[in-house]
Design a protein around this nucleic acid. Structure first.
Lengths: 207, 207, 207, 207
DNA sequence: GATGAATGAGGTTTCATTCAT
DNA sequence: AATGAATGAAACCTCATTCAT
């Protein structure tokens, strides 16, 4: 099994930053269009309008491209969640959960295919979830949300609850965006996701 | 994107059947150990104690191996679900859901790595879920369960509810088996999965 | 370079004879349809409705199939030439040449594609022309024709003349049947072939 | 049947040009020595002192090597014909035809084996003659020659006559170079080719 | 004799990575 | 730093041939 590759260096100069961004953007598009197996460094470089050599200047190998992309995605998701939780007027748990789900649905609507590849094919690498800084940020942020509503919650172990919430939210958002059964309305899907999360968090069902 | 490859022929003779089984078993092990990218037909053949040529006698290409394995897996899961729903003494919805979740956890404990690859990397192929016969069997069976308990359920659209239940159950079972956060007890994980499903199905939380 | 393979044995029994015929017929069709590179023993056997094993009972290897087919073809051409020269009423050289050309055009019209492969791709093997018995029969028969008309002929060396005649006749007949430029009428093509042969045989042009 | 493959790109830079030349030269040698079936990309690359990868940088697949070689050959033959027709002192038809035949014999004497493969095995591909630019150039040049001597010619349809001339000349030149019956002198063979062509073009034999 | 499943050497092609310019 | 031609290991797949039944 491969170990988790890291970007060779944290680029500091403006030009480098921009190059990294261009390459990552190209990776995102190619990955979304052709899947992991269909993605190769030469195509990515070409799409980025850059030479392979330059690509290897910033990314030590193919997998580090995906890793970096995943990090970027997680960071974007964290930003989306954080912003919505901080600014949404809703103060009720349901309102805040709904805002969060909606924000994620919106964020994933951009490159749905990319996200499928990123979230589904990525586990491929032996990257333990905990090692992703942005993923951990998300965990902490949701955990904090639950903390703020502890009295209303059914689950006792909030770490476990956070983990369950993240799993459910991620799967359903992806499924809703990527493989939405034709007959279901987007609004109905969104409502179902919220219902599922709230049902788990507040439900006393049968216990 | 590739279209869904099919096994070249449905082997009927005893010898063929056995060969297919041996190859599929080897594929399962190699896939579990090395992931999709690390799996190649020569290794699979070698592991199966069979020549590459024989492998290609029964499977037209590499991807058809994965497809067949996925079908087999889905069929096994259907069998597990069907059996437990038919025989479990529990008559309550919670009891039956719990029995189902437990059966799936047990079924996935055998080759956890394989299931990770199968469920996560597989979407890779453009295989529409609906085209998998066994997947559809599972859908119908769970849909039937919900039908039998309709009065107790919060969701109105049972097709949608079945879809949500399957998404949640699949993710959480896999996550529990494959990447269980160290600090959570198996029993607690199982309970959480059941809680999540029941919360969604019966919860009126905040509605 | 490979040496010329021979049929393993001269089959004597009726059943064998028939089997050889069936296999050769299948070879002819497959070869005509798919070319040498696209022809393989398994396909030939299948097309013949026979097992590969049986095929190898009568032909030691793939190339011996082609060799045998070529022999058969040469024998058929010899038969066509011999018959027409023996029976045609024409007694003039031109009349006999014309009859021969017409007979060859007819004989080649059956599987034009096959003949292309047979005559063009065949030289592939290191088979010296002289080793083919049937080819030599043809040579002798045409040589005899020239002998019978020696007084009318321009060329002195009749062996050389026979060789030239055969080369021209073969090429033009094949070209006329296989790649006839669309704008030329079959009758015009036939006339041109005869003119070419007669021009060479009788022409004093510029000498 | 395959369609006619094209070289991936028309190489413009000096280095590329040279690489293409080196690869083509190696292909010519290997093809001449081992025939089509015995030729494979690894051997060609090795013989060219180049990696397989480089070969595939310039030629998309094995067949495109042969196609390119054929084009090159046709271009060379065109050049040879064109030069000799333009510069030979002979003004008589026979003189010019003789010069042309001699030039072709000389041009083919370099790699006789290669030409056998190229002209005999090549039709293999479904390459319609007309699609080859160089082949068409040759057609036009010879057609022009006939035009210039129209009064002396027997055939009325000069397109048809050109086609016949090219067929005869190609076959006899190849046969003379590749499979010259041992007993015939080169000079006698050359004279026979010229006689055949002139006989067809000027003969009134028996008409 | 006939069968056809099994074999495996070998061919074609791809693509991650390097390095001279 | 940037380039992109060159590399070559390694993957996928075919098919001539064998041999147990």
């Amino acid at each position: 099994m491969k170990s988790l590759p890291q970007p060779r260096k944290a680029p500091r100069q403006a030009r480098s930053q921009q190059m990294v961004e261009v390459i990552l953007e190209a990776t995102a598009r190619v990955l979304g269009e052709r899947g992991y197996a269909g993605t190769n460094t030469n195509v990515v470089a070409e799409r980025a309008g850059v030479s392979v050599g330059s690509l290897y200047q910033y990314f030590p190998n193919k997998d580090s491209l995906i890793t970096a992309l995943h990090e970027r995605h997680a960071a974007q998701m964290y930003a989306a969640i954080d912003e919505v939780l901080a600014t949404s007027r809703a103060r009720s748990l349901r309102g805040r959960v709904q805002a969060m789900v909606r924000a994620l649905l919106v964020a994933h609507a951009v490159y749905p295919e990319l996200h499928r590849v990123l979230e589904k094919e990525f586990p491929f690498f032996d990257a333990p979830r905990e090692e992703s800084a942005a993923d951990y940020d998300i965990f902490r942020r949701v955990r904090q949300l639950l903390d703020e509503h502890r009295p209303e919650l059914a689950p006792r172990n909030l770490d476990l609850a956070t983990w369950v919430v993240l799993q459910i939210m991620e799967t359903l958002v992806h499924a809703a965006v990527i493989e939405p059964p034709a007959q279901f309305e987007p609004a109905a899907l969104e409502a179902s996701i919220v219902d599922a999360l709230m049902g788990y968090l507040c439900g006393q069902a049968g216990r």
